[in-house]
Amino acid sequence: MSGPGLRRFTVAPVPRCELCATVIGEEHRHVLALADRSLLCACHPCHLLFQAPGAGRFRAVPDRYLALGPADGEALGVPVTPAFVVAHGEGERLVASCPSPAGTTECEVDGAAWDRLAAANPLLREPVADVEAIYLTGREAFLVPVDACYALAGAVRSRWQGGDGGPAVRHLLDAFLHDLRSRV
């Protein structure tokens, strides 16, 4: 049992909003700190506060999932699929992250190749910079919130085995795709 004063330090911390310290549930939203692209757990009011574009140092991560149709990941020169592609800043560079023992490995996406792909599938222009990603399976593309990408990267890092990640990582990626299909 917790209580007032120092007692709250004698027990494990309860999840709190990292912006205002309100106690939040295990299920909660996130905001992205633009400075270092890290995620902060947020309560509903704080999340709302940072939904407006240009709202300072933090940006609310939306929770929409969309199927964006066909997209040939290999045409992008991204070495591995699946990969997440996120625009770092409005109209600036595109960065692809691929599952790896380090969680993800990043590489920059060739702008011209992306433009060709997006010309064939304009939906690829749909994601909000920084907080929404495109998940490329190799043949298809999905729009996913970046917090889901971070969660997947964390799970991949903790289960990676051998050179290719092993069956546990394959299973994770299959489950992720299955979950995506059920959400769109």
Binding site: L6, F9, T10, P13, E18, A33, S38, L40
Partner: peptide, 18 residues
């Protein structure tokens, strides 16, 4: 400037109190 430092401080206190 970084509200997350509050969580770090929280954990420091928790460490010592425990």
């Amino acid at each position: 400037p970084d509200p997350r430092s509050a969580l770090v401080a929280d954990e420091l206190v928790r460490c010592l109190v425990q």
